[in-house]
């Protein structure tokens, strides 16, 4: 019997410890390193930054840290504009996703029960195909001589080729397209559970459909709206692939800025400082998301 309690103690300790340790070493420690390097100076070397940590010299360690990179971020208004425009593009995209995703999720929730599982699978299927490939598909559609122009000109809606590729409009289309399942699925999950008798009661009492939509459906769908919006907004702020392939050179986004500081300018400390900046913007939404998600999973019966 002694042996068994010992065994139980051991598994109770080991089961959390292994993944905990993994995430600690490969998720938490790397963040601390980013923070450290964002405070050091670039060097023309491999790796291209000056190490600022010497175990023997704690005072020297703090002396060598400086906020030069962050001062640069504040002084050069490029980063300020990139931050603003990332947040703006992500916020507008999230609104567009709500507008596009809500009618789809609502239609799915009202479909006959035997079709619902199929509809959910059909929403998820594109998500399993490569993100990069799905964005690439839009390049051929949005090009000035591309398929959208060909169709619209054949129908006679436009006489000039559309010039959408390499604009912010193309970035919005790309984000809405790529993130749509992340918006639709949480919305569907809440709408599907909704009690229809509430809507019927409201109609019986003389409410207009529009009014019952805003006073009953929307408040009841709020958990889904919040989860879907965060699930889209947070990664969209740091998006790199979509603005890079569909946006023009004037489409400023912070994820793209980080990429070019790292790969083109090879300024690792500055890239780290940009990463910290991006993290500061996102820390509040990420914490809210974690709480919403933990509560959602743990609230299950």
């Amino acid at each position: 019997m002694m042996e068994r309690t010992l065994m139980r103690r051991l598994t109770a300790g080991l089961v959390p410890a292994v993944p905990y340790l993994w995430l600690g070493v490969l998720f938490l420690v790397p963040f601390l390193i980013v923070l450290k390097i964002s405070l050091s100076d670039p060097a023309v070397a491999q790796p291209p930054y000056k190490p600022v940590f010497e175990w023997s010299d704690i005072a020297g360690f703090f002396g060598a840290l400086d906020f030069e990179n962050f001062i640069l971020l504040v002084e050069d208004d490029l980063y300020f504009r990139a931050t603003l425009s990332s947040v703006r593009i992500a916020a507008v995209s999230t609104l567009l996703l709500l507008l596009v995703g809500f009618p789809i999720a609502y239609g799915m929730a009202r479909a006959p029960e035997r079709y619902r599982a199929l509809l959910v699978a059909a929403i998820i299927l594109p998500f399993w195909t490569s993100f990069l490939i799905r964005i690439y598909a839009w390049v051929a559609i949005l090009k000035p001589e591309g398929l959208l122009t060909q169709v619209l000109m054949a129908v006679g809606l436009i006489s000039e080729p559309l010039d959408i590729l390499n604009t912010e409009t193309a970035v919005y289309i790309g984000i809405v397209y790529a993130y749509l399942p992340f918006m639709v699925l949480p919305l569907y999950a809440t709408l599907e559970k909704m009690d229809d008798t509430l809507l019927e009661a409201a109609l019986d009492l003389g409410s207009t459909p529009w009014r019952s939509f805003w006073t009953i459906t929307v408040p009841l769908a709020m958990p889904g709206i919040i989860a879907g919006s965060l699930l889209c907004f947070i990664p969209a702020v740091g998006e790199f692939v979509i603005p890079d392939l569909l946006g023009g050179s004037e489409t400023l986004m912070i994820g793209r800025q980080l990429w070019s500081e790292f790969f083109s300018n090879r300024d690792w400390p500055l890239a780290s400082a940009v990463a910290i900046l991006l993290l500061i913007i996102l820390v509040v939404p990420i914490v809210i998301y974690r709480d919403v998600e933990a509560r959602r999973v743990e609230a299950r019966p």
């Binding site: 965060l230 790199f240 991006l278």
Partner: peptide, 17 residues
Amino acid sequence: GMVYAPMVMPEVITGLS
């Protein structure tokens, strides 16, 4: 936190760190 954060964290941050 460490379980939920990487799922929404922009990939550029995870990659760089």
